[in-house]
């Protein structure tokens, strides 16, 4: 079972929920850090790192002896990563999404692919939690291929995925094909605004989802009212507790600083299981 922890707004507590949920479940549990532009689960989980792998994407290389300047490669590329003018095609690897279209349409088979490294996958472990982190190389802008590579490591058991914030391509890549999405928000106007976007995203992808309200007593009632109106389950409310913030600042998981929170996260897990099967059957019937 794959559970994505996502949010519209950044800084609402995705990592807090993902790490503490992973630590509150019976082992074995996998925790995948798919927020590859700024992965931070490891700061709290403190896993023992076992190995690393480099992930790349295929980018085209043109053989000038075979190319007859027909321009087909440039016409199929939607990303302007290869252009063919009156001369040899020019390749801009940093714009390439690695789709392979140019190689397929080249009538002279003048294009082959080279692997261009974009990031690393780091494997680690701690107390029954198997940890996998994607880390995009500095200066790279193409995170979805790396996120897909991290998700391939899901072993089939319980898997918690810490997602990037927002509702753009990296988020879609991270939450797609999961069994349930936990949307973490805060009770503020910004939290509500971006929660609506995240809800729209989950609905467009037909994914079952529920909401966790972090620092629930710090803002106003509008997030709760919105969830009620939209029949969205509120799975957990985490209090605005200074002790959680202090533990966070020291890089300690909240369930270790406040062991009673384990019960809350275990309850969150039960609710996720309940709603994922219920909502899925609704989707199937619909």
């Amino acid at each position: 079972m794959k559970i994505a922890v996502a949010s519209g707004k950044g800084g609402t507590g995705k990592t807090t929920v993902a790490v503490n949920l992973a630590l509150s479940l019976p082992s074995p549990v996998q925790l995948l850090d798919c927020d590859v532009e700024e992965p931070n689960c490891h700061l709290f989980l403190k896993p023992e790192i076992q190995r690393e792998e480099v992930v790349g994407i295929p980018v085209p290389e043109v053989d000038p002896d075979l190319c007859d300047l027909c321009g087909e490669c440039g016409r199929i590329c939607q990303f302007n990563a290869i252009v063919s003018l009156k001369t040899q095609p020019l390749v801009f690897p940093e714009l390439c999404h690695g789709c392979g279209g140019c190689r397929l349409v080249c009538p002279r088979e003048a294009i082959h692919e080279e692997n261009r490294p974009i990031g690393d996958i780091i494997f680690g472990r701690r107390e029954g939690v198997d940890f996998v982190q994607g880390r995009l190389h500095i200066g790279q802008a193409m995170s979805p291929p790396l996120i897909r590579a991290v998700k391939k490591e899901a072993a089939g058991g319980v898997c918690i995925i810490d997602c990037p914030p927002g509702t753009t391509c990296p988020v879609i890549t991270a939450i797609r094909d999961t069994d349930f999405v936990v949307l973490v928000t805060e009770p503020t106007p910004f939290g509500l605004h971006d929660l609506r976007l995240a809800v729209d995203t989950c609905r467009a992808l037909d994914l079952p989802f529920g909401v966790v309200i972090n620092r629930c007593d710090s803002g106003d009632e509008r997030v709760v009212a919105y969830c009620h109106e939209e029949h969205i389950p509120v799975l957990l409310e985490i209090a605005d507790d200074r002790r959680i913030a202090e533990a966070y600042s020291r890089g300690e998981p909240a369930v270790e600083a406040l062991p009673r929170l384990r019960r809350d996260f275990s309850r969150l897990w039960k609710k996720i299981q309940h709603h994922s099967t219920r909502m899925k059957s609704t989707v199937t019937r619909g």
């Binding site: 302007n80 252009v83 003018l85 009156k86 714009l95």
Partner: peptide, 15 residues
């Protein structure tokens, strides 16, 4: 409004 590669595409138009 191109998401990326606007300069490359504009150069192609000029060409």
């Amino acid at each position: 409004n191109a998401p990326q590669g606007a300069g490359v595409q504009s150069a192609e138009i000029l060409s």
